[in-house]
Every structure is written in structure tokens, then in C-alpha cells.
Design a protein around this nucleic acid. Structure first.
Length: 473
RNA sequence: GGCGCUAUCGUCUAACGGUUAGGACGGAGCCCUCUCAAGGCUUAAAUAGGGGUUCGAUUCCCCUUAGCGCUACCA
């Protein structure tokens, strides 16, 4: 049984890189009919916030992929502590009574890496027990094998065979002096307990994996398969951070920019992964079928944004692709919701609304375009753009539009073809090019010089409003 | 400093030793056309550098360089 987990820690909003990790986990699980576990890694009490937990839910809910099981590490602390004390009892870990370094610079370094505090590592059991009983604070550290050093090895699902000597691994902490587990301990203890078969996470954990393997082995647990994903980075090669790059890195930014979640998912999948057959615009179903770790890259991928353009152009392009290709039944409710958020409500019934959405969506690239560029389709109160005004100011245009209004009024039939016939006939009678009337009509009806075929516009605005708008030009 | 990972157009990527190094976004141009998109076509744009191995290297090996990660009682 395939069991994968996504384990964010609530120390910030849902990060774009985390979202991609979640998506890759999800795709892998779904493809193999496994279970997706959402686990909140909240063992760092000082940095956890309710707000970031909420942001994680907001982001994940928007992606709408779902998960099968849910856990919070803070509710499983006994399990973690039990493992740490078990290792202590077996001599595989030891107490370190050295006070925590207040400053990172206090750490001993320079010549080679810091490996351990030999005095503490050598403390006798009796001495260690005595000092602990006396109430002296301590951290529990894993006792990494030193003499002789041995090789720790595993095969990564993306990066292939990996190995490291224990001589290069420091005696890392398992349990803090405040009794809280460290990330390494909690993560492994839970992965063991939750029977995680595949640990799929960011490449920043690749070197940590050796420590994790040591914990798994000490606990006598079978190793899961480890799969590391290349990181998402900024155009300057630095890692994406909110402080430096602003809201670009937050998932909700894309949601609020009018993205379809499938487009965002599609975009993220293409960062560090490829179906290898030149497909780019893919449905969720297609992604699910195409996904495999074979196609995952080993180098980091740049999210291409700038100060002026905070959205990656390819993401925008994919959004416009999905906007015009998702079933209109799927799109219409999203558009309706967006309109409502902007104080607009569609004319007519559902069928008519869908027709309008279907007509105008082909030249939009985000949901936000519906209330802005599409304003005239949902409200009588729309701005006239300067370029549209020019079309209206063409010689004779306004007069002809008013005449057209009366022709349409006189004709009980109102369809794209009937309107076209009426308009062309009028143009011919008055000796003007149809294009003049066509462009002026679009300008009058929508306030814009650009848009769908003018006759489609007539149909989308509706007979009564068309006549009303043309009469008052 | 130590250990590890990585390196193809501006960006995302394809090419599992033999290709005129392919596609996409973005750029430029053309076509289509009632406008604007879309769509179609064309075009500019890349194998970090140096050594090997090989008949032949984007591809395999080594070195250099650059970037990234870990090196915390953060995750």
C-alpha cells in the first residue's frame, strides 16, 4: 500500500514550493491508488502560528485535491518522546547537558564540522542519570557511530544512489531540553507509526535523510522510499522567501489573481518535471496518468517573475488555456462567484449566463477579467475607453447606431444572424462599410474597442439592453 | 571550512553516445479577420570552461568555475 505524506510546518503561509511538493505527493498517491496523509509538523512551539495554519488550509482547499488522513504532531508528542527515551535506554542516544548556544556564532567551527561534545558523549550512565535526576536541563542526542565510521546509503527516487560516512554526520538532537521533539525525531517517529511508504519532499532534506535513516535503523523500522524534489527558486537563484520576494511565493496570491487552481497545478507540475512528450497544457487526469519520478529533474527550477510582473508569464498563459478549455459548467460558478465579489450579478438565467461566459472567456486570461474587461456584459454601468470613443466618433457613426436601434426595435426576431442582416442592410442603404457599424456597435455596447465578434456581443447583451444602449449613444 | 546536490535558448524543458540540439512561454514578423484575442506559419535565442574515454560526446569520467542545500535544542 502506497502511503505518502505532506508535512508542512505552520510557521508561514503555504509556500509555492510546498504546494508543489503536496501536488507531486498527491499525483503519485492517486496514480497508485494509495493514501495521502496531511500531517502538520508543529513541534516548534515558538514559531507556530494559527494564521499560518489557516493559510495552509486556505491554499490546500483552493487546490481542492484533498487528502485521506490528517494528523498534528503536537498531538503525538508521547510517541516521539517514547522513541527518544527508548534510544537513550538502549545507549543509542545520550544526554547532552551543554547549555543551548544563544548565538549561532557561538558554535564551535572553523576546522571541519562540529560533530559532538566528547565529554557529554562519554558521560557514564550513572552520571547522566544523576544529573538528570537533579533537574539539570539536557538535550537528547543521537549517538552517531564513530569508531569505525560506517557508510549510510540509500537510493533516492530522483537523485539515485546516495551515501555518506557517519564521520561526516554530527550527533544531532532528538529531544530538546524543553521536552519537545526536534523535526528529525518527530518526522521519523511519525513516518514509522503512520507506515509512510514514500517520503517525498524538497531537496533541502536530501542531506538530512542520512540522519533519518539512522533513526529508522535504530528504531528497527523498515526504511521508506525517499524521493527528493528539486527546489523552486527566484530568478536571481536565491531561495523564494516572503521577506525578499513578497507575496509571489504565497499560493493564495495566485488564487486572488484570478487563477484556476488546475492551471496553477499544471504550472507547478511543469517546474521540475516533464511528461517528456512536449505536452504542456494538461488536465488533472492527464497529469495523474503521466506523473512519475522518472520525469523529475535534479536541478532547481526558477519561478520567472519580476518586480513589475509578479506572475510567471507561463502560468498566465496556462491559465488562459485552461480558462477556455474547462467545461463551461465548471467555469460558470467560479465566474459567478468572482462577479459577486465585485458587486456584479449576471443577467438572465443560467443557460444565458453560460452562453455569455463561453463567448467571452476565449480572450480572457484570469477570472478577474470577467468583472473588469467583461463588465459591460454584467452591468449597465461600464466605462467607455478612449479607443472605443474614437470608434463612436467616426463620422456618422452615432446617427447610424441610433437608426440601427430602431431597426432592431422594429424586428421581433433577435438573433446573431438577424442582427447581422439588419446591420448589413442598413450599412448598404447608407453607403457605408459594414465594418464602421460593426466596430461602433461593439464600442457602444461594451465600451471597448476590442472583444468578441460584434454579433456575438449583441446576443450576449440581449435585445432590450442593446436597443437601450444604442439609442443613447 | 566540512559534507552533499546541481549545471541545454532569457525562463520551463526534450534529446537514456550518432539529431540541421526539438517543444513551450516570452520577443520579432507574416497570414487569417468586423476589432482584439485565439489559431496557423516564419524567425532570433542554448549544451558554463578545461581535460580525458570513444570512430563519435549535450549524454560517460576527472578537474575548474558557479549556484544551491545541510552543517541549530528551525523545519
Amino acid at each position: 500500500m502506497i502511503r505518502a505524506r505532506f508535512a508542512p510546518s505552520p510557521t508561514g503561509y503555504l509556500h509555492i514550493g510546498s504546494a508543489r511538493t503536496f501536488i507531486f505527493n498527491w499525483l503519485f498517491v492517486r496514480k497508485h491508488h494509495g493514501k495521502m496523509v496531511l500531517r502538520i509538523d508543529d513541534t516548534d512551539v515558538d514559531r507556530n502560528t494559527e494564521a499560518s495554519l489557516q493559510s495552509i488550509y486556505d491554499g490546500l482547499n483552493w487546490l481542492a485535491l484533498g487528502w485521506d488522513e490528517f494528523y498534528r504532531q503536537s498531538e503525538r508528542l508521547e510517541l516521539h518522546r517514547k522513541l527518544a527515551h527508548g534510544l537513550l535506554a538502549k545507549g543509542l542516544a545520550y544526554r547532552d547537558f551543554t547549555p543551548a548556544a544563544a548565538d549561532l556564532d557561538d558554535r564551535p567551527h572553523g576546522e571541519g564540522p562540529w560533530l559532538c561534545n566528547p565529554e557529554m558523549r562519554a558521560l557514564s550512565k550513572e552520571e547522566s542519570d544523576r544529573r538528570a535526576a537533579a533537574g539539570e536541563p539536557f538535550v537528547i542526542r543521537y549517538r552517531v557511530q564513530r569508531e569505525p565510521p560506517r557508510e549510510v546509503a540509500f537510493t533516492d527516487g530522483v537523485y539515485g544512489p546516495q551515501s555518506k560516512l557517519t564521520a561526516d554526520i554530527e550527533d544531532f538532537a532528538l529531544l530538546r531540553s524543553n521536552g519537545m521533539p526536534t523535526y528529525h525525531l518527530a518526522s521519523c517517529a511519525d513516518d514509522i507509526d503512520l507506515k509512510i511508504s514514500h517520503v517525498i519532499r524538497g531537496q533541502d532534506h536530501l542531506s538530512n535523510t542520512f540522519k533519518h535513516i539512522l533513526i529508522f535503523q535504530a528504531a528497527g523500522a523498515p526504511l521508506p522510499r525517499f524521493v527528493h524534489l528539486p527546489l523552486l527558486i527566484a530568478p536571481d537563484g536565491s531561495k523564494l522567501s516572503k521577506r525578499k520576494h513578497g507575496p509571489v511565493v504565497s499560493v493564495t496570491t495566485y488564487r486572488d489573481a484570478g487563477f484556476l487552481s488546475i492551471a496553477y497545478i499544471n504550472f507547478l507540475c511543469l517546474l521540475g518535471w516533464s511528461p517528456k512528450d512536449n505536452r504542456e497544457h494538461m488536465t488533472l487526469y492527464e497529469l495523474e496518468n503521466a506523473f512519475s519520478f522518472e520525469g523529475v529533474h535534479r536541478s532547481n527550477a526558477v519561478v520567472n517573475f519580476s518586480d513589475q510582473d509578479t506572475i510567471d508569464p507561463k502560468a498566465l498563459w496556462l491559465n488562459s488555456q485552461h480558462l477556455r478549455s474547462v467545461p463551461v459548467e465548471t467555469l460558470a460558478p467560479l465566474v459567478r462567484k468572482t462577479l459577486e465579489e465585485h458587486g456584479l450579478s449576471p443577467y438572465g438565467d443560467d443557460v444565458f449566463f453560460r452562453h455569455v461566459v463561453d463567448t467571452i472567456r476565449t480572450r480572457f486570461s484570469t477570472l478577474l477579467d470577467f468583472p473588469s474587461k467583461g463588465c459591460a456584459y454584467f452591468s449597465d454601468d461600464f466605462p467607455i475607453e478612449p479607443a472605443a470613443l474614437e470608434k463612436l466618433n467616426a463620422p456618422g457613426a452615432r446617427q447610424l447606431l441610433r437608426e440601427l436601434a430602431e431597426r432592431l426595435h422594429a424586428n421581433p426576431v433577435f438573433t446573431e444572424t438577424s442582427v447581422e442582416a439588419d446591420l448589413r442592410q442598413l450599412a448598404q442603404e447608407r453607403g457605408v462599410k459594414a465594418g464602421l457599424l460593426i466596430n461602433a456597435s461593439r464600442a457602444a455596447l461594451t465600451g471597448q474597442p476590442v472583444g468578441p465578434s460584434a454579433f456575438a456581443v449583441f446576443a450576449c447583451i440581449g435585445r432590450d439592453r442593446v436597443i437601450q444602449r444604442l439609442r443613447k449613444v
